[in-house]
């Protein structure tokens, strides 16, 4: 009997022992900081001296901050345009889903942009857009158009950076869809063919419903990618020209530590706004996972 009780105790205790190191580190580095930031957003703090409580002061200031609205607007543009990676990735996946000789190498090479750092992607694209010798403008000039300084023009800069971001993101969506296409049920395709479904119709009614899990993951990673956009902006424009390519993630960093002084509390308030946008997606994701868990 003692042996049995011991075994049951062991089984109650074991999960917590296995969890302890991971959970503790995650709590200290991820979960607590979220709440600390929310708390900090109610203070004015330069990172060194005393914190002074300002209540909702930082948020009130945000409402009148033009740079905040620019960032928010750019975040929306990022979110919307980043979604193009999903159909683009599907398109490339359909193009590559064949079994000709060497196709595996082609698939890997198409995936390449996702493997390299966004710092490298940013440098490559800054150079591509360069007004004097960048390839884009070499081509534009050769067909008789005027050169465009994409990254120095408030009208185009955000779109230029998003285009750079779409490159690796499309590669990511492509690989998700290639994996999905691999698992599509061949019998259903044959059944569709017998029903005379072809091309678009087949894609829409037979293939896409089966690709739902891949689409779901593609949407999740693309939304997260769009809201996390920071690296490319920092590398390509540093938020410029005149702050016109900032997004919330970048503006927060700029406020919290940059040459404008360390405004940690104000930065934290910006981060909280970004967090609130993100939490809609996190909640949706958790809800879907919860439902899937119940099904199992």
């Amino acid at each position: 009997m003692a042996g049995l009780a011991n075994r049951i105790n062991q089984r109650a205790l074991a999960p917590w022992l296995f969890l302890a190191p991971g959970v503790l580190m995650f709590l200290f580095y991820v979960i607590f900081p979220v709440f600390q930031s929310i708390g900090l957003s109610l203070y004015e703090w330069d990172g060194l001296g005393e914190k002074s409580y300002v209540g909702m002061g930082n948020y009130v200031e945000l409402m009148d901050d033009e740079a905040f609205y620019t960032s928010l607007k750019n975040n929306v543009i990022w979110l919307v345009l980043y979604m193009l990676a999903i159909p683009a990735g599907l398109f490339i996946a359909l193009f590559l889903n064949q079994t000709v000789w060497g196709i595996r190498l082609y698939k890997s090479l198409f995936f390449f942009p996702f493997v390299i750092s966004q710092v490298v992607v940013g440098l490559v694209f800054s150079w591509f857009y360069d007004p004097t010798f960048g390839l884009m403008n070499v081509v534009l000039k050769s067909i008789g158009l005027d050169a465009i300084a994409v990254l120095a023009d408030e009208r185009y800069v955000t779109y230029g950076i998003i285009a750079a971001g779409l490159w690796p993101q499309t590669a990511y969506c492509m690989i998700l869809y290639l994996t999905g296409l691999n698992a599509v049920n061949p019998e259903q395709i044959e059944a569709g063919r017998l029903d005379n479904a072809k091309g678009w119709k087949m894609l829409w009614y037979v293939i896409l419903p089966q690709l739902k899990p891949a689409t779901f993951i593609a949407v999740v990673v693309t939304v997260i990618g769009a809201l996390r956009s920071f690296d490319l902006i920092s590398i390509m424009t540093d938020g410029g020209p005149w702050g016109s390519s900032r997004v919330l993630a970048f503006y927060m960093y700029e406020q919290a530590f940059s040459e404008y002084g360390f405004r940690m509390g104000y930065g934290a308030a910006i981060a909280v706004v970004l967090f609130l946008i993100m939490i809609v997606y996190i909640a949706g994701f958790l809800y879907k996972m919860y439902r899937d868990e119940q099904d199992n």
Partner: peptide
Amino acid sequence: VAGNFVPFQILMVP
């Protein structure tokens, strides 16, 4: 899972 998705900026200062 949720922590994995939070924006980096909300962790940055702490």
